[in-house]
């Protein structure tokens, strides 16, 4: 962290107390404690320098698109994580976003998350609807003042030139009632196509997110269709030797049939209830250091959420029941969020 803040107006304001900076954004008080040691102070006055990568000269394959994004966000200091190995409906639900967005500590992460939406299953017959797609997820907490520029830099890195493509930020407030989360932001359009959901998180698990986390979610298949200029997702070049269809078509066909027709609703209902009961039980237990086991508890919330999605896709959930299921998942999520924040030393 800088000892002097470059955006400050006067010498009086240049005072720096400990490692906290009284600058453009005020000092962030962080409480001490938590299993990961004391929370760090940070200063968001500094605009991160954008470390550009050269623009590619030919359309990227699906795989190269991911590698370019990893390269770019890695240069900006992000932790590059592997996908979370519990089924989720969206990259946001990965604990690296939902939980890490909470509490006072800074966090920078980028990862690809396979996201399962059983209701979108089309048996591999629809050229652009999938039951499992891949989201590229970036979270920067606190969001730097120039997050928009950082984001636009990532577009250039993957070959989208904003001088010939029409990039626009169109109001779209994000909300995920099952995790009690919402934020304000935009969907980013490239020539009329939504390529990114851009959100400043305001609440997660019903708790205020402060410092604010900026989240970028990119639908990789859709972006890749655009970059490669093909009409069917199955025709995408995964790399120079394989197509997306060769990699994922069987997966779409079989899982669509399973999730839309075969899945045994009664079994899933029972499993949902099992998961639901596990969460409080896990949270009551303690680890070796007396800590609450919030991370495993949250995994069970994710499993419950996925089971609900399958039951929903099977049409097994009446409209009246729907709200109640969502409410149950939200409550579980809220409990995890509260425990997590407490472990991090409280909200700033």
């Amino acid at each position: 962290m800088a000892s002097r803040c470059p955006t400050l107006a006067s010498e009086r304001q240049q005072r720096v107390i400990n490692k906290g900076c009284i600058g453009r954004f005020g000092r962030v008080e962080a409480k001490v404690g938590g299993p990961y040691g004391p929370a760090t102070f940070f200063c968001a006055c500094e605009q991160p320098q954008i470390l550009k990568a050269p623009m590619p000269d030919k359309p990227l394959s699906f795989q190269d698109l991911i590698l370019k994004l990893h390269d770019y966000w890695s240069r900006q200091g992000c932790v590059i994580l592997q996908a979370y190995d519990v089924e989720v409906g969206a990259g946001t639900l990965n604990p690296a976003t939902v939980l890490r967005a909470l509490g006072p500590k800074p966090w920078k992460v980028a990862y690809v998350q396979p996201s399962r939406r059983p209701a979108d299953g089309r048996y591999g017959e629809n050229p652009n609807r999938l039951r499992q797609h891949h989201q590229y997820q970036v979270v920067l907490k606190p969001n730097p003042p120039n997050l928009q520029e950082l984001y636009l830099g990532s577009l250039e890195a993957i070959g989208i030139d904003p001088r010939v493509h029409d990039i626009r930020f169109v109001e779209d407030d994000w909300e995920n009632p099952t995790v009690g989360a919402w934020g304000l932001g935009w969907e980013v359009w490239c020539d009329g196509m939504e390529i990114t959901q851009y959100t400043y998180f305001q609440q997660v698990g019903g708790l205020d997110v402060f410092p604010v986390a900026g989240e970028l979610t990119i639908g990789l298949e859709r972006l890749s269709l655009y970059l490669q200029n093909v009409d069917s997702v199955y025709d995408l070049r995964y790399n120079d030797e394989f197509t997306y269809g060769e990699v994922f078509l069987a997966n779409e066909q079989q899982f669509s049939a399973f999730e839309l027709e075969v899945a045994d609703v009664d079994v899933f209902k029972r499993q949902f209830e099992d998961m639901e009961r596990q969460v409080p039980r896990i949270l009551e237990a303690r680890g070796r250091k007396g800590e609450q086991l919030v991370l495993p508890a949250y995994d069970h919330v994710l499993k419950a959420s996925h089971l609900f999605n399958i039951m929903d896709a099977r049409g097994a959930i009446a409209v009246a029941e729907r709200q109640s299921y969502i409410g149950r998942i939200r409550d579980l999520c809220k409990r995890c969020a509260e425990v997590y924040v407490a472990q991090q030393g409280g909200n700033a």
Partner: peptide, 29 residues
């Protein structure tokens, strides 16, 4: 008619075709 926010060097050709593709996907749906 799409309304872009830039005057592109190529006269908006890429923008027009990009937008058309998105519309096609929507209308196919």
């Amino acid at each position: 008619i799409a309304v872009a926010n830039i005057e592109a060097a190529d006269g908006g050709k890429l923008i027009a075709t990009g937008n058309a593709r998105v519309l096609t996907a929507r209308l196919a749906d």
